[in-house]
C-alpha cells in the first residue's frame, strides 16, 4: 500500500507567530497522493489548505511561520529535511505549483517567454535556442494561440485565462510528478474555468502527473478529482473517494459545503445555503470540535472534547463525534435530515 504513495504528508503542524500570538494554521494534518491521481483539498479560506500544500514546496515563510512537527515524504524522502539546494532541484521539476491569481503570480516586468525558459534552464542544460523552441512547443501544448508572438509579450498584455495557461506551461515544463494547483481558477471567468480544468485533465493523462487541487468550491472538483480531503480550521474533517463524498457525505461540514454548490441544490425546495457563522480564529483553538459552534448536529461532547478520526475503509475517515457508537440517535437525525442530498 505504502509503495503506491508518491507523496505522504504525515502529522503536519504549522504555526504562524504574529504580534498577537501564535496562530495554529495547520494541525496534525495527514494526506497522501498516489501516482497520477487527482486529490482535491476543499475548505474555506483560512482552513489551512494552502498553508499545508505550500509547505510541500518549502514556500512557508519562516519566520513568521514555523513547522512544528510532521513529515512530508516524497518518494520516501522527507522534504522537510532537505536544504535549499536539494529543494531547488525538486521544485519546478518534480513538483510544481500554480497559484490563484495569474495576474500577480507572473513577474510583471519579464517577458512570459523568459519566465517559461527560466524554469527550463534551471533544471536542464539546454541552449538558449533550444529553450525558446521548447517554450513555444509547450505554449502550443497548453493552447496559447500564436505562441511565437506571445513569447515576447509581457504578462499584462495577456488575458487572465492566457496568463494562467502561461503559469501552467511553467509548471508543466519539466513534466513534474506532482502539480499543485492552488485555486487555479478562482480569479477567472466561469467559461475560462472549465477550459482550464479540461486542460489540466488532458495534461494529467498525457504526462501522468498527479495533481493536488486546492479549492473552496465543491462545484469544480466533481469532474476531476479521484479523492477529496475536506479541511476546516487547520484540520482534516473528512477524507473519501469523490463519489462517496458526493453521494454520502458524512461530516456535517462537508454537507454544508455541498449545499453551497448551485448545481447540487438546484431543485426547488432546497435553496442555495451558506453555513452560518464564521470559522474560529485559530489564535484560540476551541477545546472541542472546531466546527461545533456552526454545526446543526452538535452535541455536548463536541464542545468539550476533540473528536477522533472514525475510519470506515482505508481511504475513508471522518473527524466527527456523530460516528461514535454512543451517538446513534443524533447520527440518525443527521441521516434523516440530510438524506435528500443523496
Amino acid at each position: 500500500m505504502d509503495n503506491e504513495k508518491l507523496l505522504d504528508v504525515k502529522n503536519l503542524t504549522i504555526s504562524f507567530h504574529t504580534y498577537v500570538g501564535e496562530v495554529a494554521a495547520v494541525r496534525n494534518v495527514d494526506f497522501y497522493l498516489k501516482k497520477s491521481e487527482v486529490l482535491a483539498i476543499v475548505g474555506e479560506s483560512g482552513s489551512g489548505k494552502s498553508v499545508s500544500t505550500q509547505a510541500i514546496l518549502g514556500l512557508t515563510p519562516i519566520p513568521p511561520g514555523e513547522i512544528k512537527s510532521g513529515k512530508i515524504l516524497f518518494k520516501h524522502e522527507d522534504l522537510l529535511k532537505f536544504d535549499e539546494k536539494e529543494m531547488s532541484k525538486i521544485c519546478g521539476s518534480q513538483i510544481s505549483m500554480i497559484f490563484q491569481d495569474p495576474m500577480t503570480s507572473l513577474n510583471p516586468t519579464m517577458k512570459v517567454g523568459n519566465q517559461i525558459r527560466e524554469v527550463l534552464h534551471q533544471h536542464s542544460d539546454i541552449s538558449r535556442r533550444e529553450s525558446r523552441e521548447r517554450a513555444i512547443e509547450l505554449m502550443t501544448l497548453v493552447r496559447i494561440p500564436e505562441p511565437e508572438m506571445r513569447i515576447d509579450q509581457y504578462p499584462h498584455e495577456l488575458s487572465g485565462g492566457m496568463r494562467q495557461r502561461v503559469m501552467i506551461t511553467i509548471a508543466m515544463a519539466n513534466r513534474p510528478d506532482i502539480l499543485i494547483a492552488d485555486e487555479p481558477t478562482t480569479a477567472l471567468d466561469v467559461t475560462i474555468q472549465s477550459q482550464i480544468f479540461r486542460l489540466l485533465k488532458e495534461l494529467r493523462t498525457k504526462f501522468d502527473t498527479a495533481i493536488i487541487l486546492i479549492t473552496h468550491d465543491f462545484g469544480v472538483v466533481a469532474g476531476i478529482a479521484d479523492r477529496i480531503v475536506v479541511m476546516y480550521a487547520g484540520k482534516v474533517m473528512e477524507e473519501d473517494e469523490t463519489d462517496q463524498i458526493y453521494y454520502e457525505p458524512r461530516h456535517p461540514y462537508t454537507v454544508g459545503l455541498l449545499k453551497a454548490v448551485p448545481s447540487l441544490a438546484d431543485n426547488e425546495e432546497e435553496k442555495l445555503r451558506t453555513i452560518d457563522g464564521t470559522p474560529p480564529f485559530l489564535l484560540k483553538i476551541p477545546s472541542g470540535c472546531p466546527f461545533a459552534d456552526r454545526c446543526e448536529y452538535a452535541m455536548r461532547i463536541c464542545k468539550e472534547k476533540e473528536p477522533q478520526y472514525f475510519q470506515s475503509k482505508d481511504s475513508s475517515r471522518v473527524f466527527c463525534w456523530l460516528y461514535h457508537d454512543q451517538a446513534d440517535g443524533q447520527l440518525q437525525r443527521f441521516k434523516d435530515r440530510e438524506g435528500r442530498l443523496r
Binding site: 457563522g277 452535541m299 461532547i301 472534547k305 461514535h324
Partner: peptide, 18 residues
C-alpha cells in the same frame, strides 16, 4: 463517555459568530 454528552447542543449554548 457519559451518554449525556451525546445529547444535542442547544443553539444558545453555541458561541455566536465573531
Amino acid at each position: 463517555h457519559k451518554q449525556q454528552l451525546f445529547t444535542p447542543l442547544d443553539r444558545s449554548e453555541k458561541a455566536g459568530p465573531i
